[in-house]
Design a protein around this nucleic acid. Structure first.
Lengths: 150, 150
DNA sequence: CATTGAAAGTTCCCTAAGGGAACCCCAATT
DNA sequence: AATTGGGGTTCCCTTAGGGAACTTTCAATG
C-alpha cells in the first residue's frame, strides 16, 4: 500500500498525523502513559502483531516521542514518554472525552479520571491560552501564519 | 490498514480511533471545518484517491460525524459537521497546537488562529471541566468507570 | 560448563487496504 | 441531441498489517 507522506504537508494537523496517526500508535501511547512500558507487556495487552509493534516503537523513538532505555544488565528495554510525547497524551485526553461523550452508550465511560488539583472525577475542556475563555471549533478564525506556503 | 476492530474495545480512545483514526480522516474533517465541503473540492485540495474519499465520507456520515445534504436541484451534495463532528475538531485543535509546537521548525506555524472572544492569536490549553485548573497527562489518575470490563 | 528461560525482536507468507486512472450516471444547459 | 460538471465506481497494482514461527542475547541455575 503506497502511503501518502503527510509529514511533508504544510499543515500542523497533517504533520501530527504523520507521527501520531498510524494504526495502533494512540493505543501504544495510552499504554505507556498508564505504565505498560515493555515490549511484552504492550504486545500482550494490545494483541498487536510483534512486527508492527517493533516498527511503531522505533518510529516513535526516532521522532522523539518515546525514549527507549535499558532497565537491566541484560538487553531489556522499556519505553517512556518524553516531554514531546506527553504532549500527544493531551490529544488522547481529548479523544477520551469525545469517546466518553459519544460512544460509551448506556454502560458509561470505561475509565474515569481523577484530577489531582481538585480531587474530582472530571474531564478536559479546551480554553484559550491567552484569555482563558472556552475555545472550540467555531470560536476561532484561521489566518495564514509565518510558515504558510504563500 | 487497520484490520483489527478498534471499535469493539472497551476503551474510549480505541473507539475514537475507530471513527477518527483512519488515514486522511483528520484532514478531511479539517477541510470541512474551514469550509471545503464538496467532493471535488476535497479531492482537489487533498490529492486523495477518489475511491478512498468516497469511503471515508460515507463512513463519517454513517457514524454521525458529517451530514450529507443536497445544495442544488441536481444531484449535488455537500458535507457539513454535525455537533458530534465538531467535537472531533476539538481533537484537531489540540493536534494543531502540538504540531505547531514540535514540528513547525524555523518557519513557524503554517496557520494562526484568532480567538473570537479576545481577538488575540492564540492556541488551546487543556483545563479541568470541574475546577478550571490545568489538566494534562500527569495531572490525573485513571480509575475504573461504569463501562469497564470488570 | 551446558542448559534453561525470558525479553525483545526478525522473518516469512498471506490478505486486505490505499493509489491512480479510467470510466459511468445524472440533471441542467446549449 | 450533444455537452458539461459534480459525484461517484471499477479496475489493477503495490504495499502495509496479521499471525505464527524462529532467532538472539545474556543472567541465572544445575
Amino acid at each position: 500500500m503506497q502511503r501518502t507522506n503527510f509529514g511533508e504537508m504544510v499543515c500542523s494537523i497533517a504533520r501530527t498525523v504523520d507521527v501520531f496517526g498510524e494504526p495502533w500508535t494512540p493505543l501504544i501511547l495510552r499504554d505507556v502513559w498508564v505504565g505498560l512500558s515493555r515490549f511484552e507487556q504492550l504486545q500482550a495487552d494490545l494483541g498487536i502483531s510483534r512486527k508492527v509493534l517493533t516498527e511503531r516503537l522505533h518510529y516513535l523513538v526516532e521522532h522523539g516521542v518515546l525514549d527507549r532505555r535499558p532497565y537491566d544488565r541484560r538487553p531489556r528495554y522499556e519505553y517512556v514518554l518524553t516531554e514531546k510525547g506527553a504532549g500527544l497524551v493531551d490529544v488522547l485526553m481529548v479523544m477520551t472525552a469525545w469517546g466518553d461523550k459519544w460512544l460509551a452508550g448506556e454502560a458509561g465511560p470505561p475509565v474515569h479520571y481523577r484530577h489531582h488539583a481538585c480531587g474530582e472525577i472530571s474531564g478536559v475542556e479546551l480554553r484559550c491560552a491567552h484569555c482563558g475563555e472556552p475555545m472550540r471549533a467555531y470560536d476561532v478564525d484561521p489566518l495564514p501564519g509565518p510558515g504558510s506556503a504563500a
